[in-house]
Simulated assay, not measured.
Amino acid sequence: MTSTVPGAAVRLADLPLRPELRGEEPYGAPQLDVPHRLNVNENPYPPSAAVLADLAEAVTGAGAGLNRYPDREAWALRTDLARYLGHDLGAENVWAANGSNEVMTHLLQAFGGPGRTVLSFTPTYSMYPEYARNTYTRYVTSPRRDDFTLDVATTERAVAEHQPDVVLITTPNNPTGTPTGLDVVRAALAATSGVVVVDEAYQEFARTGTPSALTLLAHHPRLVVSRTMSKAFALAGGRLGYLAAAPAVVDACRIVRLPYHLSATSQAVARVALAHADELLSQVDALRTERDLLVDWLRARGLAVADSDANFVLFGGLPDRRAVWEGLLARGVLIRETGPAGWLRVSAGTPLEMAAFRTALSEVAETQGLPGWRPDPASRTTPPTTEHPTGPERGDPR
């Protein structure tokens, strides 16, 4: 039967696509309807009724002016973000966009591009090479240490070797969860004349007392600190990311942004979330607790586990990680097939979600005969649910 969809006979391969995009797949983290979704590091606690009421009022107010363009500078939102961050920052130090994904794209549009290089340290966030590809920036990497940490010597060697225009340091790192000290950030700034971007998407989940690179901004005009409201603020659906930097860096982003890039409703929703910051961030401690309990439990089962300061845990020692991932999915638990070979990543969730994960992993490990597995006497097995389609694993939207 001939398709009635206009243009259906033309394949992607038939189009004059950019050469570097041939064979590529769209971003495709699985979005499956399963009981326990622990694959994209979302905050599992939805907004309260009081927050929802304020969101509805704010969106209604913004809706009354949707026939007009929004404030293209998002000045009120940037003022609120600066107040949240502290460190004597003002609105002129802050830039906001549609998730930190767009923030990173703006940075590479401004400071990367043809003939320029961006350096990151692997394993790390899997979207970085895509930002580089899309902005025609050369992407190079240097490996982290065996425990996934990053030290001064490694950083200085990599900068000296590659002479990057942009250095990306992710702390806590994704997918490993490992933190990076400010000594490494200082070393990167001293070693390069380029821009150093510290991606702190998961900083709110770091252990109490962990310093932020925000403390260095006043003395380092080439430093950029990127954040997101998708994780700790439980605003993944709001798509709001931001950075803090010298006003000149913000001006560079203003040059490359699309006109009116942040909708009026996005700005209104984000401002409500910031007004309720204490409430929305109130579950961070609970998620830290679940993370730490999970690290202990996985290690007690005989698995390798990376130290984590984020709201997720990377665990390894899996001869066939795909089989483990599929076994968990068949039992209604979706986690992330990412990171080095033999490793998987699971987000910290509610106590109920964590119990379901432990039960499912115990059954999968015993069914598959996972080497070195030490059974948990407290675990109970559950019957498998229906199978679900799978898709390519990529980065987490921020």
Results as ranks from 00 to 15, higher is better:
T2R: 07
G7R: 11
P16V: 04
R18F: 08
P19H: 10
E24I: 00
E25G: 04
Y27G: 03
V34D: 08
V34C: 09
L38Y: 12
V40G: 09
E42C: 07
S48R: 13
A49L: 12
A49D: 15
D54Q: 14
E57P: 01
A64K: 15
A76C: 01
A76F: 00
D80Y: 01
D80P: 02
G86A: 05
D88K: 14
G90C: 07
E92H: 15
E92T: 11
N98L: 09
N98S: 15
V103F: 01
Q109Y: 02
V118D: 00
Y131L: 11
N134M: 06
Y136E: 13
R138T: 11
R145L: 15
L150Q: 08
A153L: 10
E156I: 00
R157K: 14
V166L: 12
L168C: 13
L168V: 12
L182H: 10
A191W: 04
A201S: 05
F205V: 02
T215A: 12
L217W: 12
H219C: 05
P221A: 07
L223N: 03
T228Y: 01
M229Y: 02
A232V: 09
L235I: 00
L240W: 01
G241W: 01
D251F: 02
A252E: 15
V256H: 12
V256I: 10
T265V: 14
Q267F: 02
A268N: 13
A270Q: 03
A275I: 02
A275S: 07
A277R: 15
E279S: 06
V284W: 10
T289H: 14
E290V: 14
L294P: 03
G302Q: 03
D307L: 06
S308G: 04
F312I: 07
G317K: 07
E326G: 12
G327V: 04
L328T: 07
L328M: 06
R331N: 05
G332M: 02
L334G: 12
E337Q: 12
T338G: 02
T338K: 01
G339E: 03
P340L: 04
G342N: 12
E353G: 03
M354R: 13
T359W: 09
L361A: 07
L361M: 05
V364W: 06
A365M: 01
E366V: 03
Q368A: 10
L370A: 03
T382E: 15
T390H: 14
G391H: 13
P392T: 12
